[in-house]
Amino acid sequence: MTVKTILVVDDSPTDRHIITSILTRNGYQVGEAGSGEEGVAKTREMEPDLVLMDIVMPGMNGYQATRLLLRGDTTRHIPIILCTTKDQQTDKIWGLRQGAWDYITKPVVTAELLQKIARLD
């Protein structure tokens, strides 16, 4: 699978901007969503090759959105990388148990993010 389109789901406009800038500079087409609910809806609409999902968001959190997407007929095949400030090992284990393919902590290190995406290709 070649990753070309990525949806960034994060309630922080600053974090969305930083991550989107990194991705667009590296040739990816990027969509954005500002909440878990919007992320689920946009994933269904766009069917991106990858979703970068924050965890801590008001309303539907990233764990809930990940579970919902992985249960959907049209979205279950889309890999999700959790991208969050939650840096405890238990957070990572829980995120991977929810079905996420990988986990990255903020602040995002460009090389680490691109390496994780490249592993999906």
Rank of each mutant, 00 (worst) to 15 (best):
Q98D: 10
I93N: 07
R71M: 13
G62P: 08
V109G: 06
K106F: 12
V3P: 09
D49S: 10
T43C: 13
M46N: 11
Q64G: 00
D102G: 13
I6E: 06
L82G: 00
V109C: 09
T2N: 15
T74D: 12
T5P: 08
L120R: 08
L52D: 06
E32P: 00
M46Q: 14
D73G: 10
Q29I: 11
R16N: 09
R119N: 13
P79D: 10
I22R: 03
L68F: 09
V9D: 00
R71A: 13
I19V: 15
M46I: 12
K86E: 14
G36I: 07
V30W: 07
T74C: 04
T20H: 03
P13F: 11
R67C: 02
E32A: 01
V56K: 06
M1W: 03
Y28V: 05
L82H: 11
T14I: 14
G27Y: 10
E32H: 01
P79N: 12
Q115N: 15
Q115D: 15
E112P: 08
T90N: 03
V108Q: 02
Q88L: 12
P48Q: 04
D11M: 05
D15H: 12
D102E: 14
Y28P: 07
G27V: 10
G27Q: 01
V109F: 04
I104L: 15
G27L: 09
Q98T: 10
W94L: 13
I80C: 02
V56T: 10
D87R: 04
T110A: 11
R97C: 04
P13G: 14
V108R: 06
N26L: 09
I104A: 07
Q29Y: 13
Q88D: 12
A100T: 01
L70S: 06
P48C: 04
M53G: 02
D11N: 08
L52P: 00
D121E: 13
G39E: 05
G31I: 08
V51P: 09
